[in-house]
Simulated scan of single mutants.
Amino acid sequence: MAGDLLDNKGRGDASWSWPAIHPEGRKFGVLAVGISLFFLLLLDWEIIGWPLLLLSAGVFAFFRDPERVVPQDEHAIVSPADGLISLIAEVDPPQELMIDDGTGNAGMPVGKVTRVSIFMSVFDVHINRSPIAGTIQRIVYIPGSFMDAGLDKASEENERQHILIERMDGTQVGFTQIAGLIARRIVPFVKPGDTVGAGQRVGLIRFGSRVDVYLPAGTGSKVLLGQSVIAGETVLAEIGTQKLIEGVAQ
């Protein structure tokens, strides 16, 4: 199905398939299987070997990389991550996304914008995708602590990586990959100057984390607090649209 065009009129051909395992995770899965077989076959310690074998399956599942159907709408900002909308707030963008970085590329303008935070549990897909089509203007990695990614202050204190993307019309969307209690490595797939499409894979965070999205000024969230979202598919916002949307948990 990769690369196929599907629409809301029923055109196209969709079918289910097993998700691929991203190459970044294959080495961890193979290592876990090897350790499991060592305990099972060489030491005959089944009480340890079988749980480790189940853990190996979990490692492969964590690094799964399913295909996604990305909306082709120039106004849409799609979710960069799978997970739960844990925070929505009006904030100033991080300094790293606003200040002059010396490259001549302007950062996000000063002023409050809507920040949408997506919490990724260990059960979610951890491949992150670009929220818009455009050019990677900057990537800024910041070392930090590993507190609970669900806390608001994790945006400023945890290990994190800021990415700023700019469309051809100058519209900018910034987002931040934030490590959590278990996550210990942020892995980028892109670099400044790269051109990306909406929904294109741009990186991953190992083992539980959070992604903050900073919407352009004058743009509000179309998702609700507590809603589950899917990377590359769920529309977080429409550029230039800002209105109150309410929902009921049931």
Rank of each mutant, 00 (worst) to 15 (best):
L5Q: 03
R11W: 06
I21R: 03
I21N: 02
E24V: 09
V33S: 11
L42A: 10
L43D: 01
W50E: 02
P51A: 11
L52H: 08
L53W: 09
S56P: 09
F60H: 13
V69K: 07
P71S: 07
P71A: 07
E74Q: 02
H75G: 06
A76D: 03
V78M: 01
S79F: 05
P80G: 04
L84Y: 14
D92K: 10
Q95N: 07
Q95L: 11
E96W: 05
M98R: 14
D100K: 10
V110R: 10
G111S: 08
K112S: 12
V113K: 10
T114V: 15
M120K: 07
S121F: 12
I127M: 09
A133S: 13
Q137W: 03
I142K: 13
G144L: 09
F146T: 00
D148H: 09
A149F: 09
E156C: 08
E157T: 14
E159P: 06
R160S: 01
R160A: 03
Q161L: 13
H162S: 10
H162T: 09
E166P: 00
M168G: 00
G170W: 02
V173L: 06
I178S: 12
A179C: 12
L181Y: 11
R184Y: 06
I186Q: 06
V190W: 00
G193K: 05
Q200E: 14
S209D: 09
S209P: 08
R210E: 06
D212N: 12
P216K: 08
P216D: 08
A217E: 10
T219C: 10
S221T: 15
V223T: 14
L224H: 15
G226R: 14
V229R: 06
L236Y: 10
A237W: 13
A237I: 12
E238F: 11
G240Y: 04
T241K: 15
Q242V: 03
K243R: 12
